[in-house]
Amino acid sequence: MGKFGETFLNWEVMAQYAPKIVEGFFVTLQLAAVVVATGLAAGLAAALVRSLRLRLVNFFIVAAVDVLRALPPLVLIMILYFALPTVGVRLSGFVATWLALSAVLAAFAEEIFWAGILAVPRGQWEAARSTGLGFLQTMRHVVLPQAVRLTIPPLTNRTIAITKGTALGATVAVGEILYQAQTGYSFSYNPSPLTLGAIAYLILFIPVVWFGRWVETRFAWKR
């Protein structure tokens, strides 16, 4: 293998840091799971509230969504982790990263769900309401099932993109994959732990990408 192998695929170093990377793998997995769950749920909730068309409430939703979409997620994480303690709120790195990424995912998801809700033709609302279904019943049984199908491709892409941002947790000492890999690199002066980290990310996210593709086909319109 020569110099390349010794540098990037140093078995000795990899064996030494593998347990730490595995540990990091599960932290990333946990963080990703809570971010996806919280982000998508909050995004859907915001889109539903927005569909009530309360002028003042919608102004705040749109403003918040725009801010969250414009800010780099890392800035949010830094604010939550480093700035909040000055006003007495002390969050762990995990919680700060979780909240920041969830908020960003929620913002994007809200826009996507909202676009999906708007894309359902007005006639669907009218047909459902004319049979006596209420607003929420129509939303739940008629509009959302159609809207969600429309939104699955963009939503999957955005969810994967933001979930990968869990690596940003390394900057606030969350013991996830990148943090462990970086630590291993610093101690060993050998980048092999980073290689191992990359492999860990692939093991985690390739199935997610595949799952996304499967969901897209599964929910494609029966035509």
Binding site: A127, R129, S130, G132, L133, V142, Q146, R149, W221
Partner: peptide, 20 residues
């Protein structure tokens, strides 16, 4: 109004069946 509407059937030009 929902109670009223279920007593009034409506049929639309564009059918508006639920595609799902």
């Amino acid at each position: 109004i929902n109670a009223v509407r279920r007593r009034i059937g409506m049929v639309f030009q564009s059918f508006n069946l639920y595609p799902h």
